[in-house]
Amino acid sequence: MNNIEKLQRTRSFPTIRVESEPNGDSHWMYMHSDAAPGVRPCFRSQMLDDVLSFMNSITLRESQRQSGKLRHLVVASAAPGAFNLGGDLGLFSQLIRENNRDRLLGYARRCIDGVHHLNTGLGGDVRTIALIEGDALGGGLEIALACHTIVAEEGVDMGLPEVLFGLFPGMGAYSFLCKRVSPQVAEKIILDGNIYTSDELYRLGVVDVLVPKGQGAAAVQELINKQQRAPHAYLAMNASRNLAQPVGYDELMGITEVWVDTALALGDKSLRMMERIVRAQEKRSGARAA
């Protein structure tokens, strides 16, 4: 990142690293700062709590906002080769086997709280940017889709593979995809369960900015600098977007309740597939950390 000398490490969280400009104009949030062999770069409950806690800590009340002051939040990853591999499939499998609807819905609700907050610009004065330098799958792609802008490096794997174990991505994928592509294309991406390259999703219009490997952070900083030169325009665009293309909280929660009920109806074959994927993720995270 070119302006690393301008950034300061802020409050410490167990699973995320945050670097911020001293004036608070931009924050870079790196998921999976606790990456280690066997630690899956997915939305474990602790990391989900840390992400929500940090976003809430930088959200300003309307009375605290300065006229014409635009801020930025960059969502990135500290895990080697992975942006985020999605929901905690190990937890899902456990809760489904226990038929624990309350805990499964509670997890899903926290995910919805996060993506809705990102999509609405933390109240309206923040532009959110996803920096994808490694694989973004399932819920990992969903958090990126919730952001205003997706910047991805070439050759990165991205997709929504939940259909492989009889499920669908229920934390915003359909709603956010339909703002970027047609509903027919959104359904195809979801129901085919294919893994795409970032290059392919750029051509489809899902990825906004595609850059060569190693140039993602510089591209994000250039984007931030450009937007800071016209802050009133981008603040107005936030407001206009939330009026013209809203993704409402009730819509997101309604879909995630369908997801919960679908998950609870899965049979043993689907759950065993989830558990195999968990083991593969653990093996892969160990290999990449090594």
Rank of each mutant, 00 (worst) to 15 (best):
M31G: 12
I4D: 09
N238W: 03
H117S: 15
C111P: 00
C42Y: 05
R241F: 12
D88S: 02
H32A: 04
G124V: 12
D34N: 15
L91K: 02
G170N: 07
L52R: 09
A130K: 03
Q8K: 15
N56D: 12
L105M: 07
E275C: 04
V258I: 13
E133Y: 00
G38R: 10
D157Q: 15
M55D: 08
T197D: 01
G193E: 12
E251G: 08
R61W: 00
K188C: 07
W259H: 15
G138K: 03
F92T: 12
T15F: 02
A236I: 00
V126A: 06
Y196M: 05
E162G: 03
I58M: 07
R71E: 10
G216I: 15
G159V: 10
H117R: 13
G114C: 09
I190Q: 11
R284D: 15
E251W: 02
G134A: 02
E98L: 11
A280I: 10
T197A: 03
L91D: 04
M237P: 00
R241K: 14
M29Y: 02
E98F: 01
C178W: 00
H148E: 14
R110M: 14
Q94A: 07
R272F: 05
P212W: 06
D157M: 08
A82E: 09
P212Y: 14
L252T: 03
G68L: 14
P212Q: 12
S12G: 01
H72R: 12
V18M: 09
G193V: 04
M171T: 11
G134W: 05
T197I: 04
F168L: 01
M29P: 03
A82S: 02
A219W: 13
Q8V: 14
S20D: 13
G68P: 07
N119W: 00
C178Q: 09
G24T: 05
L201G: 11
K269P: 00
G86C: 10
I195D: 01
S20M: 02
C111A: 14
L104Q: 05
G81F: 01
R284V: 01
A265D: 11
A108R: 00
E133K: 13
L160Q: 06
A146S: 14
V156R: 01
T15Q: 11
G87K: 03
R109D: 08
M47T: 06
Y234H: 15
P22V: 06
I255Y: 05
A233W: 02
L141V: 13
D135C: 09
S198Q: 08
F83M: 03
L235E: 11
V18F: 04
A280E: 14
E5L: 12
L137Q: 05
A244P: 00
H27P: 07
G166W: 11
P231S: 05
A290H: 12
E187Y: 05
P246K: 03
